[in-house]
C-alpha cells in the first residue's frame, strides 16, 4: 500500500510504543525474578539467583506444568475435533437454526469465565454428582476452546469455497477420501492456528479452572495463585513466568514457520 513517509513514521513510532508498553511489565517480571525482595517490591535491592534455584528444585511447579500441559493438550484435541466438525457443518450446509448454533459455539467464551465456572461447577457436582478432578477441567476447557478452532477453520473453509470438494466427489472420491485428501490438507494451517490459540487459552485459564478443578488437580495458574499466598514463594512464581515466556516462543515460532502464512496465527 502506498503511504506517505510521515504516516509510515507515525505508524512505526506507535507500533514501537505499543510493543514497549507490552513488554514493560514482562521486563519487570524478569528483573523481579532476580530481586532479593520476597514481595516483588520496586526497585530491586540487589541481584540473587536464589529464586531460580528454588524454582528449579520445586517439584510442585514441575507437577503443575505437567498437569497444565495435560489439560491443554487434551482439551485442544477435543476442541480440534469438535470445532472442525462444527465448522464443516455450518460452512457447507444450510439448515434451520444455523445462526443459533453459531451463537451457541461462541457463548462459552463470550460469557464471563465466572459464569461458565459456577455453571459447570454446579452441573458437575450438584446435578451429575461427579467428583471434580482433572477430567472436569478438561471438559470445561474444551468447551470454551471449541470456538477458536471453529473460527479459524470456518474462515478457511469460506475462502476455500467448495469447488475442490465437488470436483473430488465428481471424480468418484467418497466423503471420507475427499476430506482426507482434499479438505484436510487445506485446513492444516488453520487447525494449527486454532489449536495453538486453544492451547494458550487453556494453559493460562484460571477462573473456570478454579471452579472445576478438584482435590489434587493443580494446574499452573492454580499453583501460581496458591504460591502467591504462601510465605516466601512469590518470587519463584516470577521465575516460572519467565521460563514460560521463553519456552513459549518456540512453539509460536514453529507454528509460524509451518503454517507459512501469518493469517494462520490470528
Amino acid at each position: 500500500m502506498i503511504l506517505s513517509s510521515t504516516v509510515r513514521r507515525v505508524l512505526v513510532a506507535l507500533t514501537g510504543l505499543v510493543l514497549l508498553v507490552m513488554y514493560l511489565p514482562l521486563v519487570v517480571v524478569v528483573i523481579n525474578s532476580f530481586n532479593p525482595s520476597r514481595t516483588l517490591t520496586w526497585p530491586p535491592t540487589g541481584v540473587t539467583l536464589e529464586w531460580w534455584r528454588r524454582a528449579w528444585e520445586s517439584e510442585g511447579a514441575r507437577d503443575a506444568v505437567v498437569s497444565s500441559v495435560e489439560v491443554a493438550v487434551a482439551s485442544t484435541v477435543i476442541a480440534l475435533v469438535l470445532g472442525t466438525l462444527m465448522s464443516l457443518a455450518l460452512q457447507r450446509y444450510r439448515f434451520f437454526g444455523k445462526s443459533s448454533v453459531n451463537l451457541l459455539v461462541i457463548l462459552p467464551i463470550a460469557l464471563p469465565g465466572i459464569v461458565t465456572g459456577i455453571a459447570l461447577n454446579n452441573a458437575f457436582r450438584g446435578i451429575l454428582g461427579i467428583q471434580l478432578g482433572i477430567l472436569t477441567v478438561i471438559v470445561a476447557h474444551a468447551t470454551f476452546c471449541i470456538v477458536t478452532v471453529f473460527n479459524n477453520v470456518q474462515a478457511r473453509l469460506r475462502r476455500m469455497g467448495g469447488s475442490f470438494e465437488e470436483a473430488s466427489a465428481d471424480l468418484g472420491a467418497g466423503v471420507w477420501t475427499t476430506f482426507r485428501l482434499v479438505t484436510f490438507p487445506q485446513l492444516r494451517s488453520a487447525l494449527l492456528a486454532g489449536g495453538l490459540l486453544a492451547f494458550a487459552l487453556s494453559f493460562d485459564e484460571i477462573i473456570v479452572t478454579t471452579f472445576t478443578a478438584g482435590a489434587g488437580t493443580t494446574t499452573l495458574p492454580i499453583w501460581i495463585l496458591n504460591n502467591l499466598f504462601r510465605p516466601n514463594q512469590a518470587p519463584v512464581v516470577n521465575v516460572v513466568a519467565v521460563v514460560l515466556i521463553l519456552v513459549s516462543i518456540l512453539p509460536i515460532w514453529l507454528a509460524q514457520k509451518l503454517s507459512g502464512d501469518t493469517e494462520a496465527l490470528r
Binding site: 514493560l24 511489565p25 519487570v28 517480571v29 517490591t41 495463585l225 502467591l228 512469590a234 514460560l244 515460532w253
Partner: peptide, 30 residues
C-alpha cells in the same frame, strides 16, 4: 516477527502480569 511479539505476552501467566502491573503502578513504581 511482530505476530510472535504480540503473541508472546499471552504466555506469561495472567496472574504474574497483574502483579507486575501492581508493581508498576505502586507508589514510587515505574
Amino acid at each position: 516477527i511482530l505476530v510472535i511479539a504480540v503473541l508472546t505476552p499471552l504466555w506469561a501467566s495472567y496472574l504474574v502480569k497483574a502483579f507486575a502491573w501492581r508493581s508498576v503502578l505502586s507508589d514510587g513504581g515505574i
